[in-house]
Design a protein around this nucleic acid. Structure first.
Lengths: 229, 229
DNA sequence: GTATGATTCAAACGTTCGTTTGAATTACTT
DNA sequence: AAGTAATTCAAACGAACGTTTGAATCATAC
């Protein structure tokens, strides 16, 4: 009847995706069972298989929903910056900001579940299961090539394999920051009020990453911090 | 008979620990089943419960075996450096080197399974299961306090909460580098020959981290890279 | 050699897993 | 209102999970 209000076509799908996002983040892919998941979503146990086919397909759908738009936004930002620059190479910091900003802004999006997803994403970079790694790699491939090219223009005196490693480090720092489980709280006395201030976090992160990415190559240039005490 | 040679007291325990180390790294804690694990170790299915009590206790034992000596070595290195410095604060790079060197040297230890463990460790930092996070946090607590104090002396003009975040970033970069699953290969065109050159990797990593850790605070000092294009 | 404790073994325990089934219900078209 | 497709539902499926059991085997002391 009219009691159950609007049923926007595929509400069940959305409910499942939201619940999966949160539970995969909290318990991992194997730890979040179908029964726990469907109960939290308020749907029947068989709904996942009906709408997605299998649990693996659900995992893929969870990433599809967020990752494709997120990477599209990253590339759009980069395109816009390069257009504004009129052929000049971008500042490394601007490129870094284009890459991490899209993730970090989702942290504040607690209402729409963006926070859940971004933490899930951070954890997934170190996921052992091969199909999931393949999935993530496939979804990121184009974006990574695009950003590597931008960095190569911005940092012409950093060699290609050197740049590869620095992007690797950048990726690691970001993913760990996103995942930010309570491990860090237990390890180093976490200050919860900082965590939600994504603007301050972004400034700290961008500063840290920029310094690391633009640092002079050890073997080449003049002043390095080496030598030490 | 004399056919089976020396049986050094607890060989079964060691075989189980080695197999667990590798399989936990490859498949995760839940993904590596007892049957798979005991088969690889060449022991009976019940051996884990007999020698360790439960699968959870085995997980804990896997970390105990490597983590305690590793952190002890980190602190010993730091003690030695500070003793040599005669009260002078250490160079930040030296502290970083003391921290990451102990992990990276294990990468080359393929024979004794050190590589397996260090990759397992990398992925465990983002492990969702609460008992495991608690375990890791407990095992790291003392070491982190010790290193935070050393960094605080080396970087007197970096505020405490600022320092916390930079150490957080450092931790993330290291753990991701250690985990270094094939994700990175799929994402960015991995060069396998680099991965095993742990010496070159350490130089790159130390350089990246040092630059990030000593970078000037945005709000305070004069020259920052900000502004950008 | 025989007794004692430690370890290994094959088999089974109960539980939970992801998935499937076929009927019941809902939504939509004519 | 009748008919058709889409969705939901309770129930069950076989498989795999971690763990337990009790007898068999081993090592070691007397």
């Amino acid at each position: 009847m009219t009691l159950r209000s609007v049923k926007p076509q595929h509400e069940t799908r959305r409910r499942i995706l939201d619940a999966a996002e949160e539970l995969f983040m909290q318990h991992g892919f194997e730890g979040a069972s179908m029964r726990l998941l469907t109960t939290k979503a308020g749907v029947n146990l068989a709904a996942v298989n009906y709408h997605f086919g299998s649990k693996d397909a659900l995992i893929e759908a969870v990433f599809q929903r967020r990752l494709d738009p997120m990477n599209a936004a990253r590339i759009a930002t980069l395109d816009k910056l390069e257009k504004e620059a009129n052929g000049e190479p971008l500042a490394p910091e601007a490129i870094i900001r284009a890459f991490v900003g899209e993730s970090l802004s989702m942290i504040e999006d607690a209402k729409n579940g963006g926070r859940n997803f971004v933490r899930l994403l951070g954890r997934t970079y170190t996921e052992p299961a091969k199909p999931i790694r393949t999935l993530i790699g496939r979804m990121y491939a184009g974006t990574m090539e695009r950003f590597k090219a931008a960095f190569a223009r911005a940092l012409p005196d950093v060699q290609s394999n050197e740049l590869f490693w620095r992007m690797h480090f950048m990726f690691g720092t970001l993913s760990y920051t996103l995942a930010a489980t309570d491990t860090v709280q237990l390890i180093a006395g976490f200050k919860p009020e900082d965590r939600h201030d994504s603007q301050a976090l972004q400034e700290r992160l961008v500063q840290f990453l920029t310094a690391g990415l633009v640092s002079s190559t050890p073997g080449s240039s003049t002043s390095t911090v080496r030598k030490a005490a």
